[in-house]
Computed example of a mutant assay.
Amino acid sequence: MVDRQGLGPVLTVPNLISFTRLLGVPLFLYLLLATDATGWAIGVLVVGGLSDWVDGFAARRLKQVSRLGELLDPLADRLYILATLFALTYKDVVPWWFTIALLAREAVMVLCLVVLRILGHGPPPVHYVGKTATAILLMGFPMMLLAKYSEAARAWAEPSGWALLWWGIVLYWVAAVFYFIQAGIHVRAGRVEAADAP
């Protein structure tokens, strides 16, 4: 099935994986916040993090790259990050200062996208540093959750979780700098094209 608005193929394997990842967000929140099924919540979080790599691999392997997939993938990433962040902050698994640091980065990115949209440009392409940072954060969050709710695992899960979260948040901000550079190049290139147009 092909979308009529330039989004490319819709019913593809990578897009179905991304849709499934999106459904995992409310499932994770329900399991963690509305029930005592913490183990299942950790499982959903781990599967969601792993599938972040799977959909991109499937798109390249099956040659099913589409504009819809390029939009769905970062949307699923952001929803997973934000939903997990709020839930773990609410449960006192991660401190507020860490939440603020991540939210500040997201606010900067939203501002960048708004400015690009006002200037008539789309979002810059996803950078591998940003994808790496997201993957690391999505590995660190279940580690922290495991450390909070399993006394036996705490000795190794908590330091491992913090190592991943620190690594992830630094790369997350580095990726934001790269996105700004990409956006600046994109805007300047557009101005040059406009100036050269007859």
Rank of each mutant, 00 (worst) to 15 (best):
V170L: 08
G168L: 00
W162E: 13
F141M: 01
S150R: 11
G140S: 15
L137C: 09
V177H: 03
S150C: 02
T132E: 03
P159T: 01
P142C: 08
A147K: 12
V174Q: 13
A147W: 06
W173R: 03
A176Q: 13
P159Y: 01
A153V: 04
I169R: 05
A157G: 14
A155K: 13
R154Q: 14
S160W: 05
F141K: 03
G140Q: 03
L145R: 12
L145E: 03
W167A: 14
K148A: 15
L146R: 06
A163R: 08
A135M: 13
L171N: 13
A133Y: 00
M143G: 09
A157T: 08
M144Y: 06
E158L: 07
A153L: 07
P142M: 15
L145N: 06
L137H: 09
A135R: 12
W162F: 13
A163N: 11
V170W: 01
K148H: 08
G140D: 07
I136A: 12
W173G: 06
M139V: 14
T132P: 03
W173D: 03
L165T: 01
L137V: 00
L171A: 09
A155T: 11
M139C: 15
G168S: 01
M143Q: 15
A163D: 00
G168V: 05
W156S: 12
L165H: 00
K148M: 13
A135T: 14
L171H: 10
E151G: 07
S150L: 05
Y149W: 08
A133D: 05
T134D: 13
A133H: 08
A135K: 13
W162N: 06
P142A: 13
A152Y: 13
A152E: 15
A147C: 09
I169W: 05
V170Q: 00
M139P: 01
G161L: 05
